[in-house]
């Protein structure tokens, strides 16, 4: 069995998905592919079943908010690991903040359930088809998605913190 490299993984992905892969980069040696958001589910399903790559372990799901990228503000990140080859892959899919819909992968990895709920909780990404997409860490009656950049980190109810005393 030949050793998998970032290049061979990328070649195999491009053979299979071709134009669905929008771009790729290798920051800090971690192969990262940007994929069309509607194809992310298929790619993760295929990676799990593929006999060559054997990427059948979901390390994490997360999101990033890029307020400056109009029409593609929210980036959903999937980290997939091949335990057989010890090779990692990051899949990024961008969705617009006005319609942050992406297919759930709970039908592929049941462990994605809580991670998708967390991503929904903090970023408001709507995982279409998720069995129970509700808040998981924040209080249930919270009315916004706190990790989006337009919201302040600080508690809004503090009255003793005057900006003048903090150099702001």
């Amino acid at each position: 069995m030949s050793q998998l490299t970032n290049d061979s993984v990328l070649n195999r992905l491009q053979e299979q998905f071709g134009p669905a892969i929008i771009s790729h980069e290798v920051p800090y040696g971690l192969l990262t592919v940007e994929v069309q958001s509607e194809k992310a589910h298929d790619m993760i399903a295929w990676l799990k079943e593929d006999d060559v790559l054997k990427m059948s372990f979901l390390t994490l799901i997360g999101a990033v908010h890029y307020p400056d990228q109009k029409g593609r503000e929210l980036c959903v990140n999937y980290h997939i690991h091949s335990l057989v080859h010890n090779v990692r892959l990051r899949i990024r899919a961008f969705v617009p903040i006005a319609e942050p819909n992406i297919a759930t992968i709970t039908d592929i990895y049941i462990g994605a359930d809580w991670q998708e709920r967390e991503t929904y909780d903090f970023f408001g990404v709507n995982f279409v088809g998720h069995p129970n997409l509700t808040r998981i860490l924040n209080e249930d009656d919270m009315d916004y998605f706190p990790m989006r950049k337009e919201y302040h980190l600080e508690d809004a109810t503090r009255e003793d913190k005057d900006d003048r005393y903090f150099g702001r």
């Binding site: 706190p146 980190l153 109810t157 503090r158 913190k161």
Partner: peptide, 16 residues
């Protein structure tokens, strides 16, 4: 007072 955790998820003192 909430201590160092001046953040959206932490109660800023139980006297609230």
């Amino acid at each position: 007072s909430g201590g160092i955790f001046d953040t959206y998820s932490v109660l800023q003192g139980i006297d609230r």
